[in-house]
Nucleic acid binder design. Sequence first.
DNA 1: CCAAAAGTGTTCACCGTACACCCATGA
DNA 2: TCATGGGTGTACGGTGAACACTTTTGG
Lengths: 223, 223
Amino acid sequence: MSYYYKYPHPAVTTDVVIFTIHEQRLELLLVQRRGEPFQDQWALPGGFVEINEDLETCALRELAEETGMTGIYLEQLYTFGKPDRDPRERVISVAYYALVPPDRTGQIKAASDARQVGWFQLDSLPPLAFDHKQIVSMAHQRLAAKLNYSTIALQFMPACFTLGELQQVYECILGEKLDKRNFRKRVMAHDCIKETGEYRRNGNHRPARLYAVKTPGHVEFVK
Amino acid sequence: MSYYYKYPHPAVTTDVVIFTIHEQRLELLLVQRRGEPFQDQWALPGGFVEINEDLETCALRELAEETGMTGIYLEQLYTFGKPDRDPRERVISVAYYALVPPDRTGQIKAASDARQVGWFQLDSLPPLAFDHKQIVSMAHQRLAAKLNYSTIALQFMPACFTLGELQQVYECILGEKLDKRNFRKRVMAHDCIKETGEYRRNGNHRPARLYAVKTPGHVEFVK
DNA sequence: CCAAAAGTGTTCACCGTACACCCATGA
DNA sequence: TCATGGGTGTACGGTGAACACTTTTGG
């Protein structure tokens, strides 16, 4: 432990950008801060890494503490370490992002402690504490980039979904409309989803085929 | 500083995978460890982040300390934080990778302190300390991936270079031969290098045109 | 029968790939 | 004149993009 005296150690946290899709909008989970600094402002869920805890485990723990969810897709984003990013002391934050299917966001309120917790549309976020705006921005950029060369979008899908719903996920992350026929061709070429044989009857129109992911929990890289 | 008591802080280091090209081989810089653990084994250059030092600044400092070089391309790679990756205490390492043009590798020996420092071919590395083998592997993977959608390879080039030399850089990073005509077409389409008007006379054959990067220090993403 | 979303194929332009020969030089 | 690497163009196939109509259902 001699290094402890030679080098004062920084604090290390993980912060998690937890995305979901809700009503054709990309949303993320924020918690309201209790104490200073940035009191009452909204921030990414996160917390200190315990001394014998793996970074990813820590991020998963934060995720579970705020949402009650486990088995969620999680990926390291970037490590933010500007010396003055926290006014209290030196804090280095290893940022992660997580993708939550919308059918699993119900548990949030129950799992969270006394603090305010809520989902916010990405395009109308409140002011964020620390450098969290920058973290969110990088996470969104990464997510959008990965849509084009991986099957990461499937992490947003419930067990059964229609191709129209999947397309809406792409559209709201990329912020643009896609051609239905080209989209379906591309998705089918990946060969990562399969028909369930079921249909969803949903309004005054033709029922939509329901699909399921072939190998849940896995993100494939294409090409 | 109340967190100091509530949470014991981990040590944080940066480790840098410093790549260069030498004799048509991808090489990286290693330093020999003096003390325990992994005494006398080779490791990536790296060291503790000072308490008021930016992470990238720290990586650049390590780079300068080991090589005497400044103005080198540097990019964050990934943060490694398994609790037992260092047997002494908890150490979280923010890994970076750097790309050094081969005409600037001469200063190494002079700048380094008493420790052994050397360049090693990527495909014949000695056993590495800690999890540095994994770090190197990820760095190589990232580098190879970026060749295909950025102009990062230009960071390896000296002020003047031939297209043949540039192609060799691609070939030894990707580990495969490329077609000369297609390669030149692609490079020219990027419009990132320009003819200098000079030629290199080099053996019993036609002299090669010399090129220079249009905007040095900048990595463009293509497509 | 009308509205609304589901479902389906073809055409075209562009890009990446494959491929072979002449050029300038030094020995 | 020969060996060596430098330099150049074309033809093909595959992929991504544009584009419109029929189907099935509920009201």
